[in-house]
Design a protein around this nucleic acid. Sequence first.
RNA 1: GCCAAUGUAGCUCAACGGUAGAGCACCGGUUUUGUAAACCGGCGGUUGAGGGUUCGAUUCCCUCCGUUGGCUCCA
Length: 641
Amino acid sequence: MAKAKLPDGSILEVADGATVADLAAQIGPGLARVALAAKINDQLVDLSTPLTGDVTVVILTSRDDIGLEITRHSCAHIMAEAICSIWPEAKLVYGPTVRDGFYYDIDLDTPIRPEDFKRIEQKMVEIIKADTPFERAEMSRDEALQKMAGDVYKFDNIQNAQGDVISFYKHGGDGFEDLCRGPHISRTGSIDYKGFKIMSVAGAYWHGDASQKMLQRVYGTCWQNKKELKGYLHRLEEAKKRDHRVIGKQMDLFSFHEEGPGFAFLHPKGMKVWNGIIDFWRDVHRRYGYEEIKTPIMLNESLWHKSGHWDNYKENMYFTTVDEITYAVKPMNCPGGLLVYNSRKHSYRELPMRMAELGLVHRYEPSGMMHGLVRVRQFTQDDAHIFCTPEQIQGEIVGVIDLLQEMYAAFGFEDYHVELSTQPEKHIGSDEVWETATNALKGAIEQKQMDYQINEGDGAFYGPKIDFHISDYLNRSWQLGTIQLDFSMPERFGLSYTAADNTEKTPVMIHRAILGSLERFMGILIEHYAGNFPIWLAPEQVRVLPISEKTNDYAGAVLGQLKDAGLIVSLDTSDDKVGAKIARAHADKVPYMLVVGPKEAEAGVVNVRMRQSTDTKTIALDDLISMIRQKIADKSLDLMI
RNA sequence: GCCAAUGUAGCUCAACGGUAGAGCACCGGUUUUGUAAACCGGCGGUUGAGGGUUCGAUUCCCUCCGUUGGCUCCA
């Protein structure tokens, strides 16, 4: 007899060699029907796995995240079979699950087009309806290699596979078989044939290596049922509405033009948001002891030879020649900052020196890389370079993290993750210096009690770094802040300071950015707020809406007072009814709408309506002004008055 | 850059091998309006650019440019 301990603590005895499916049936016919796979002693297995001895068993259904993932993986196999049945020459490469679905990489010379999705889906429905079992077959690695000797992709997969036992799964009437670790659902019919959809096809290099063959990656999504699928498709539609490119157009914040691909044009309203961000940024940096500098956007090419950018970064740079002198448009601000440092001698008493720069940089990006404001060819970095002694490193890093946390909190970003990248193979500087520097970074993160992930060998060639990442609404991860230690530049540029013992020493240089690229940050902010900027950042804070022309004079007076109070305000004197004016103000995402008619004019008050609310409140204008000003000063995320 | 898709009025989208159409926006008029869109009229397009096929191309084909979704990269 085998003893199975279940999640509720109970122990069920089953005949030795009985399968998980048998166990599920013993627990109840309902469970048997929805069971997809199981965990035995925390190991994922198929329902057909026999039970022996004392084990803990968790039976997984599509309600479990893992159950759904297994379903998706099985769905990927079914799609692979469908594709192979349509294009027999297709070679399967690799088909994992991803968030919300799965993909399968396929080597096939005929392009798979969106028009083909329907017939692939139809074939998949047939396979699901045929309800054939997934059957696992195991063999040794050598046997598997021999079996797949003619298939470069599967042969490669087997070589990369972990463990000594290699498994294959078979399903379908034609005996479709694929190398796979498993587990899988027990029958193809367990998938709801209305619960999946093929989403897109894209190119993907084998092993993600641009020198390898471009494969076709077919993406699909799969859910418990039709309703869940529809919910997912609906969420995608909603996410599209939040896309900063869409909102940017709607709200007239910025635009792009063919004349300058990857160069953003900020419109008046976009500039209001931009200036709101940098006013705050300057205030914070002043408080944290930074000085601000500004360096030219192009500098003599020779400087970039000296800095090492010519050797390491030339492909991403723009150049221009005037009077036979070649200038490089700066892709980074550091060389300019170094020239500023070197413009006079420095004493140890001045350190740490924190020099900030909102530097406009240009980086040539391959055309396929560009994406709205978040991936551009020209952007403004909120850069700073800190020059300090080795002993000061950790304290400075902690200071940067403090500053960063204060800024992120003001924008309401709670969810970000930290990555520490360590010494890469190709690097400069001794192992000792790297260790000291890496420990300083680690020490600072630990001192701040932050969780972090280590990216071994992912540092820059000149030093280790810490990166701060956040996810946008479409779940793409973006790097915002970065703190990088640099051992290369101070030496290349012969930086020095006079130490207490009157010797000349080389300072340590820390590069850091908090928001990263202001353009990108603005894009992320737009999505984060869905265009509903908090009052302190809103490109239009208040709009006055007179009921009719008869109240235009009073509305004008209200407008004047709001302007005098320093608020960004406008007046809608169009010949529309107030309902239309309100609808338009909502579309423009204006935080406060002031409706004024004869009643308000008589009493000298305003009727306030807040964005995202249908409540209204009548209030004296002076009171409203002081409340709004308070909210701006507090950077309040709440509009309620 | 690579793979695929795509480009029609300021915006969102129709149509089609035979002279391009709607809604919103804009302009003019009527209305003087009370909390998410009053009514009437008008303006607006060498259909991304350039070639080719054709009696005829916005439609089919090619090249280029932009954009979108991915892949590598990174702020």
